[in-house]
Design a protein around this nucleic acid. Structure first.
Lengths: 136, 136
DNA sequence: TTTATTTTAGTAAAGATTATTATTAGGAAT
DNA sequence: ATTCCTAATAATAATCTTTACTAAAATAAA
């Protein structure tokens, strides 16, 4: 009996609708502008909260890796990166998988595709052992 | 005569040294903490400016895609993304290249590799035509 | 040295996101 | 329909990250 209920509010519905209507991969603030045309009194915090909610419940996607704090790497040897899904920690993959070839690729809206890279997601040791104690 | 000279200052040298010494892919603020152990009077702005300088001159790497504003996507059909190197605009690649397999991968410091994805960099149409006029 | 110019420290400002709190409104149960 | 419980909202403040500004210091060349 103690499972929390979720409510489909007008705000949540409009946010979802407006996001599905566009292909521009908007930021929270850009979407706020769109949604406000229909719900002038909505607040930016509501947009942020619902985008998080919708992404967590699998109805929309967060663009991967975006929005995290900038990180730097002094190692110029070719390698790839894993990001911990839990804490954001970055690990190095020093034996990289082959990079996909982009020559000849054509994407609408883009005049040129320059390069491609593989990014990995995983769970780091620290977060994995923390989970043994406090499991979701 | 009008080419600007660059100076290897103590601050720049220490920032580069400390970044090369670690494999943690630090943020500007984390590196600031490290560098301050040796140069207590350095300012955070100097760290940011030199990280930008070093990345632009190819001595260090900026972690790809990190640090941009969060973006969202309402399209749950499997696809990949291109990011414009110039303006950050995102495009969709609806005929994705095959995703690399991660089963059996082992990375030191990580207990589990969950998934991999391919990300693309390119130049969008708007930026490409802007370049025709104002070329770097 | 003197000079010209880059770089720095310190601080302010801007931008993005999260937290707080009193109020509103979903929707289940009456 | 009405009542009631609690999730969700609006409004705002606070935090975190990054960039901009400026007078002073440092670097390299003349």
């Amino acid at each position: 009996m103690s499972q929390t209920q979720t409510r489909m509010t007008r705000q949540r519905a409009v946010i979802l609708e407006e996001l599905r209507k566009t292909t521009t991969h908007p930021t929270a603030d850009e979407l706020y502008g769109k949604v406000r045309e229909r719900l002038p009194r909505i607040s930016l915090g509501t947009v942020y909260r619902n985008l998080d909610f919708l992404a967590d419940s699998g109805e929309i996607r967060r663009l991967e890796a975006a929005g995290t704090t900038k990180r730097f790497d002094g190692n110029m040897v070719e390698h790839q990166h894993v990001r911990c899904l839990c804490c954001g920690r970055i690990g190095d993959i020093m034996t990289p998988l082959p990079t996909p070839a982009v020559s000849g690729m054509h994407v609408p809206g883009f005049s040129e595709i320059r390069s491609a890279r593989i990014e990995f997601d995983g769970i780091c040791d620290q977060c994995a052992s923390a989970r043994l104690v406090a499991n979701d």
